[in-house]
């Protein structure tokens, strides 16, 4: 289990998060919602351990992230950022292989298992046919799927001793900059990865920040609604996505908020 207890964080004097607590259970599918600038990205970075909290603790199976070796941590928790910008022309396969970094020693070269993991991740995200293309020449939707593949390759622990431990995939607004078709595609991919993760020996937990209420309502099992750095509501979608919470958090009229709630929850 990945849990955050009373997290607070500030960039300089700018407070971003106040006393945020949340749990991601083994096999959980958590959606983080909230207006722009409410601290979703910062929360994900704290959960991944790539940013140290000012106060509060993030722990993985009871151990504080700060006490876990960064390579061991990277084999358990992978992050897909909102945008992946590459300064140089790596091929899609090379980007997927970058996920294998925490599995290799300083001067070790990727072996057959790492190649297999990278290819499996490309298969899973439907990007295997792009393996030899330059990453920078892909469309936004393709780049997003390759970024997910790189994270999956990173979490591929079939050959290590940790093969029964829960893995955590954190995605930062994975559909934000995509057109309708890719939004649907990437959302379906995340739902499928989660379902497949439940069937495997080492469950896959997914945390994704999103603005997509339909995705949050239909795919996620737990929602965390943030506003101005504080948790406004936590729970199953039916409890979190109510006209009251949405109108308070987003500053909408109650009738408009009610009309935005996906049909299944009304």
């Amino acid at each position: 289990m990945l849990s955050a207890t009373d997290l607070s964080f500030a960039f300089g004097t700018q407070r971003v998060l106040w006393d945020v607590s949340m749990d991601v259970r083994a096999g959980g599918m958590v959606g983080v919602l909230g207006p722009n600038g409410c601290g979703k990205t910062t929360l994900l970075r704290l959960l991944a351990g790539s940013l140290p909290a000012d106060r509060g603790v993030v722990s993985l199976d009871g151990r504080a992230l700060t006490s876990i070796d960064r390579r061991n941590l990277a084999r358990r928790i992978a992050v897909v950022p909102q945008h992946t910008h590459l300064a140089f022309d790596y091929s899609v396969l090379e980007v997927a292989l970058m996920g294998r970094y925490p599995h290799l020693g300083a001067f070790e070269v990727e072996g057959p298992e790492d190649l297999a993991a990278a290819h499996a991740a490309l298969e899973a995200t439907g990007t295997a046919h792009l393996a030899h293309r330059a990453f920078t020449t892909l469309s936004g939707g393709e780049q997003q799927r390759v970024a997910i593949a790189s994270a999956l390759a990173q979490l591929d622990v079939r050959t290590s001793a940790q093969s029964h431990a829960t893995r955590f995939l954190l995605l930062d607004e994975p559909t934000a900059s995509l057109d309708l078709r890719y939004q649907v595609e990437v959302a379906a991919l995340i739902a499928r990865l989660h379902a497949e993760g439940q069937a495997s020996d080492s469950p896959l937990s997914i945390v994704t920040s999103t603005h997509d209420l339909r995705f949050a309502a239909t795919v996620c099992t737990t929602l965390v609604l943030l506003a101005e750095g504080r948790v406004m509501a936590v729970g199953p979608p039916g409890q979190v996505l109510t006209p009251e919470t949405l109108s308070t958090v987003y500053g909408l009229t109650p009738s408009l908020a009610a009309s935005l709630i996906p049909a299944g929850l009304r």
Binding site: R45, A48, G49, S50, R70, R71, L73, A74, R75, I77, A78, V79, P81, T84, H85, L86, A87, F88, Y90, E94, M98, G99, Y101, P102, L104, A106, F107, Q154
Partner: peptide, 21 residues
């Protein structure tokens, strides 16, 4: 020694850090 970390750092400091660099 730097060759592989440099590969990952072209993804940006954050993305490299979450991969264990």
């Amino acid at each position: 020694w730097l060759a592989r970390p440099l590969n990952l750092m072209t993804l940006g400091a954050n993305a490299a850090a979450t991969r264990g660099v």
